[in-house]
Design a protein around this nucleic acid. Structure first.
Length: 426
RNA sequence: GGUGAGGUGGCUGAGUGGUCGAAAGCAGCGCUUUGCUAAAGCGCCGUACCUCAAAAGGGUACCGAGGGUUCGAAUCCCUCCCUCACCGCCA
């Protein structure tokens, strides 16, 4: 949520920044300013009347204690009371309109974000490692999974429909090994605190991290819209301290959690969704940071580095992409994607997004009223960041494709062997 | 799920219709004094919003949430939420 004062003071700047993402939300700025003006006018008038009522009510109290008549004053206050009821309703309605508009306006891209309207304007930041030499006959993860009996997609479909995964045997164990490996890496070497949060959260949490109100149709909900299945651990982790005022010396707070993620992914189908690459339920290890305003951008860089480390230790080739203004998600001010090499996908391989690391600045914090005490004693909104560290199905797919052997077996990276218990799957 | 108790400022805790945004204590901040690592005295010390060019100042709202009664509600009534205790059930 943007600061209404910023919009009021620099409407042109906000309009221009919002427009740089594409979309039509910039048009809402004018509407918002109108509502804001009406709201403040109503509020000022309301407060004037309330003040008057307070004054007269005290006068009544005074007169009664002296045994004087109060009928005339009571009639007057009753009249003011009627006007107050009316103005309260109008004021509350403007207030709600304003909040609803604010919830629908996306965050402003950071000034460093490259301008562009689609992914073609994204910027390659760096690459790490090299593509494996597999002799041009790389199998994709679906074929490999079937051959090694570590994926049972047919039966997953029987249980839950398309878009669900059933890891089998060594596949299930590999999934678990990867989760443990990543959690250990981030807690032991990167200083994150491991959490195991609820997988169902309240509506307010979903609003806090910007999944709602705009993207409700992408979410799974329960109980008349009261509880939602988390689409990512970002939601419970970032909301942990919602409505709190944190001590700056406790910042940054760094959390890591494994959770399943539930997404409707309505309308997605086709080559992008083959196998386990885009599904309704998947596992993910997520990194979240809560920081001060001053440090959030350096924290973003180290967050990306923390996520990259997973691929480095596993020895998987990847690249880091900086998203352009038009490709940013709703709440993000700046985002880096990490894409791992998948030699079996498409014809001759492609890159798969396994992490998206974003700085939301105070956009989420404002929605969830998450603050810290500034050095000047004033309460300030925190900055929030998150990134996958990493998403499992695509990592799983990339791993078995990159390390497949000519005989169809998969040789596991050294670091993973102790977690998996063996050095290969065959 | 049942019964009972309760939700007041960073914490503890008064306050059952009228200068209560709220006593007091603790914590915190500032000054003074003594001196020593602690104590005493005095002062300040919630949040959000509106107003104001800004600061100062002024105002409004907030005592779990939402409604109601009233000229006036932390205080009375209703609904809901949460916490605690005991009972029941249970992986």
């Amino acid at each position: 949520m943007l600061d209404i004062r910023l919009i009021r003071e620099k409407p042109d700047f906000v309009r221009e920044r919002v427009a740089s993402r594409g979309g039509d939300e910039a048009a809402k700025i004018d509407e918002l300013l109108k509502v804001d003006a009406k709201r403040r006018k109503a509020e000022t008038e309301l407060q004037r009347l309330q003040s008057e009522r307070n004054r007269l009510s005290k006068e009544i109290g005074g007169r009664k204690s002296r045994g004087e008549a109060t009928k005339d004053l009571e009639a007057e206050v009753r009249k003011i009371g009627d006007q107050i009821v009316d103005l309260e309703q109008r004021s509350a309605s403007f207030d709600e309109q304003q909040r609803n508009l604010l919830l629908e306006i996306p965050n402003l891209p950071h000034e460093s974000v490259p301008f562009g309207k689609d992914p073609s304007a994204n910027k390659l930041v760096r690459e790490w490692g090299t593509k494996p030499k597999l002799g041009g006959k790389a199998l994709d993860h679906v074929a490999l999974g079937e051959k090694l009996k570590i994926l049972d997609l047919e039966r997953a479909t029987k249980l839950s429909g398309s878009g669900f995964i059933c890891f089998a045997g060594a596949g299930a164990k590999l999934e678990r090994a990867l989760i443990n490996f990543m959690l250990d890496l981030h807690t032991r070497e990167h200083g994150y605190t491991e959490m195991s949060p609820p997988f169902l959260v309240r509506r307010d949490c979903m609003i806090g991290t910007t999944q709602l109100p705009k993207f409700e149709s992408d979410m799974y909900g329960l109980e008349n819209g009261e509880l939602f299945l988390v689409p990512t651990a970002e939601v419970p982790l970032t909301n942990l301290h919602r409505e709190e005022i944190l001590t700056p010396t406790d910042l940054p707070k760094k959390f890591v959690a494994y959770t399943p993620c539930f997404r409707r992914e309505a309308g997605s189908a086709g080559r992008e969704t083959r196998g386990i690459l885009r599904v309704h339920q998947f596992d993910k290890v997520e990194l979240v940071k809560i920081t001060t305003a001053e440090t959030s951008y350096e924290e973003l860089e180290s967050l990306v580095a923390d996520a990259e480390k997973v691929l480095q230790v596993l020895g998987l080739h990847y690249r880091v992409i900086e998203l352009c203004t038009g490709d940013l998600t709703f709440g993000s001010a700046k985002t880096y994607d990490i894409e791992v090499w998948s030699p079996g996908s498409r014809d001759g391989g492609t890159y798969l997004e396994v992490s998206s690391c974003s700085n939301f600045e105070d956009f989420q914090a404002r929605r969830m009223n998450l603050r810290y005490k500034g050095a000047d004693g004033k309460n300030k909104f925190c900055h929030t960041l998150n990134g996958s560290g990493l998403a499992l199905p695509r990592l799983f797919a990339a791993l078995i494709e990159n390390f497949q052997q000519p005989d169809g077996s998969v040789r596991l990276p050294e670091k993973l062997q102790s977690y998996f218990g063996r050095n290969e799957i065959r």
